[in-house]
Amino acid sequence: MNYRIILALGAFVPAAAIAQDQPAETRDKTSAVISVGVDYEEGSYGTDQDIRSWSVPATVKVQHDRLTFAASVPWRWIEAEGKGTIVTPDGPLGLPLFPSETQVDQRIVREGLGDVTLAAAYALPVKVVNLSVSGTVKLPTADEGLGTGETDYAVGADISKTIGAGITPFAGLTYTMPGSSEGYERKDGVAVNAGVAAQIGKRATGFVAYQDSASTSDGLPDGQRVATGVNVGLGGGVSLGAYGSAGLSAGAPDLATGLRLGFLIP
């Protein structure tokens, strides 16, 4: 069972969680997946602003043996209403800023290409559990107003084990080292996630998960949320996934949802 494909559907898990669990007999083969999707988030994120964002990410993932590489770039649309400096969180990697010199209510909209994210993961040769380590870098390629203009780094580890009839408990940890923009300091942060995935019939897998992400800004609270989703194989190497999450703390989005359509290239 590949719970990480499901988790990668949404932004509530770090982008580093891309390693796949492959049968031993297929580990010497190379495969690639191209996916496109759409994500929506809304909330105040512990600020005085109402923030809504859409993202349309395009991702290419290549796997060979125990190594997995992925590259992703989104088109983004963000709307914020409030006063003062408007901050739009984007998970552990990235914190786009909307600087404002006024202290009156206003509506600000930004749209364009977001930052490029590159990730790599290695599945360790451990027999008792599925264990992988990963690294991620977010490059400052976003259009003006849609990124910090700094490079962010993250390292992580994921563990899982399938028990019984297709039930897979999992957990992960990510340590993020964000770059600081001029006049806006950011600090390192830790994110943890845990949950259970389960096989639903022959072609579908579902999951429920919890995540707690430490804020990388002194001015914003930590983010906690719960999520659920499903991934369905449509045949011919095509898969469709959907997820939704709800915030449990002020630093998380009140609501997040998204879809992914994937195409396997043997």
Rank of each mutant, 00 (worst) to 15 (best):
V87K: 07
F69N: 04
D143K: 00
L97K: 07
N231M: 13
E101C: 00
P74W: 03
T30S: 12
E41G: 03
I163D: 05
V208K: 07
G82K: 10
R110L: 06
D188H: 04
Y45D: 04
T136D: 02
Y243D: 11
T176G: 01
T141A: 02
V129N: 01
S55F: 01
W54M: 06
I163M: 04
Y153E: 00
Y243W: 10
G84I: 05
V192C: 09
A15M: 09
E185W: 00
A242C: 07
E101S: 02
E81N: 12
K161N: 12
E81T: 14
V13T: 10
F170S: 05
Q49A: 13
G229F: 14
K61V: 01
A19G: 14
L240I: 03
I86H: 13
V38S: 13
V232R: 04
G37E: 03
R107N: 08
Q103P: 03
A209L: 06
T85R: 10
K29A: 07
P57H: 04
L173S: 00
V155L: 08
D212H: 15
Q63W: 00
G37L: 05
F69I: 04
S217A: 09
G149K: 03
S217Y: 10
G189K: 06
I5L: 10
F207Y: 14
D90W: 10
E182N: 10
T59S: 02
G172P: 01
T148D: 03
T47P: 06
L7T: 02
E25S: 03
Y184A: 01
K161I: 03
K61S: 14
Y122S: 04
G82P: 11
I108G: 00
E42R: 14
G241P: 11
A142H: 10
I167H: 14
G233A: 13
L264Y: 11
F170M: 05
V230E: 12
G244F: 08
D115G: 13
